[in-house]
């Protein structure tokens, strides 16, 4: 599973990596370009159920970030 994300808080990169570990997914790629916004590309490997859960949690992080001023 690959995710191309535009984040506002670079700390979310660490959070996402930790979540992948928690769900027994392997983070196989991280590419981050951090400026005023953060462009991040992740690739994850793991069971489908775990990847689905990870995707949902990433979506939740994105929804919190969307609220930021």
């Amino acid at each position: 599973m690959t995710c191309d994300l535009t984040l506002r808080d670079v700390r979310s990169v660490a959070r996402i990596v930790n979540l992948a570990h928690r769900f027994n997914c392997r983070t196989t790629q991280i590419a981050v370009q951090a400026d005023t916004t953060v462009i991040a590309r992740f690739a994850f490997d793991g069971p489908d159920v775990a990847l689905g859960r990870l995707r949902a949690q990433i979506d939740r992080i994105m929804s919190y970030e969307a609220d930021l001023t």
Binding site: R53, A56, Q57, D59, R60, S63
Partner: peptide, 8 residues
């Protein structure tokens, strides 16, 4: 209100 709950 939280779309991540759908289908979880």
């Amino acid at each position: 209100i939280d779309a991540t709950e759908f289908g979880k």
